[in-house]
Design a protein around this nucleic acid. Sequence first.
DNA 1: TCGACTCACACGTTTGAAGGGT
DNA 2: AACCCTTCAAACGTGTGAGTCG
Length: 437
Amino acid sequence: MYHPRELYPSLGTSYRLGPPQPGADSTFPPALAEGYRYSDLDAPKLDCFLPGIEAAPRTLAAPPPLPPLPPVLGTEPAPPAPEALHSLPGVSLSLENRELWKEFNSVGTEMIITKAGRRMFPACRVSVTGLDPEARYLFLLDVVPVDGARYRWQGRRWEPSGKAEPRLPDRVYIHPDSPATGAHWMRQPVSFHRVKLTNSTLDPHGHLILHSMHKYQPRIHLVRAAQLCSQHWGGVASFRFLETTFISVTAYQNPRITQLKIAANPFAKGFRENGRNCKRERDARVKRKLRGPETAATKAYGSGDAPGGPCDSTLGGDVRESETEQVPAHREATLAPVPPCGGSSAEAYLLHPAAFHGAPGPLPTRTNFPEVPESGPGRSASYSAAFLELQAGPGGSGYPVAPSTAPFAPHFLQGGPFPLSYPGPGGYLDVGSKPMY
DNA sequence: TCGACTCACACGTTTGAAGGGT
DNA sequence: AACCCTTCAAACGTGTGAGTCG
């Protein structure tokens, strides 16, 4: 595990932990603000989107407070969710898979983070209403620390065990359909199931970087883009659902969470009670291995005669979450007339999505966009992300930009004036960060 | 010694290309 | 030629458990 102080010596000892910077936002509805500390909906992180907002109030500038840290996960009362800050009046978001999230939250949601990046499960799936059907929007997701504590599993529950690690570079995941019209977003639930979490501070793929054993809160942001290629943005709405709070781990600590994940996640089907990868079967395999080569009977067993069958999950479901894919073929943006603007804009993505998705061939940069996208032979390139890494602007993060590794260098688009060039949907926006604590 | 982390593994799911039929 | 459907293989996502590290 890398330590930011080793990676970024310039941080020095002044990179200290401490309470969030105080601030009050008079524009935030008191009913929502009361009792909450919105830990990190700080302007700098989204500043890149804000300067161009046309006559919109800076609703993101001052986070309302979050409730005090509960002693045990899952014991907090049901919040008035979603909590929202917005300059997009009338826009509302609802969490589609809320029941699943609540189930996990009642136990204490844990999310595995790995060096290579691990998907969130459950994923954030929301439905949105109140958008202008004609206007175009970007859907973004980021994850922010809930508090300044590090946690430890104490056999039965999570307990704070010291101060949090320093903040890592903030990254924002951009939904692959972005930008799309309000009608598109409202037509079907919007799923962020491709978001990946990593604990590698040098992650070259643009996954969201988290510390292990810390408590996090996903947030969803809607940004109205007045036009494609526009330098102006029509407003921002940010939402969070308190039941989506989780603790990042490198290995599951709470066995109940493991059970829930196995029961609910289709990819973990093999670990269910009747699966061939369940404990009983794995033990049997180990014994067979120790005894020698497989017998004919075991071969037949392995080739599909096993008593597998449907899952008899105690949670009463087979696949309890089947997340809807945002079907690219339905992307009306691909059918829309494309204005003649190049660079790493949304249109550039729509014209050459593969070029943005980690194609092994020449990758686009701001000024050098390949005419013919190269798509790799395998699927590995399909969703690896391009993302924009910004140098700290005036009053900005001051967090040093992680050095880019050679093979991915074209993905890292450095600096530049606001508003940002668009890094490509399905990609991540690295907006740097400033130490919050 | 212990807790956190990494890695290889086996298995199931997803995805997209290829091929055939209409 | 265009569309639809099925099949198939590779890539991907998953939790596990042994091993490693500090």
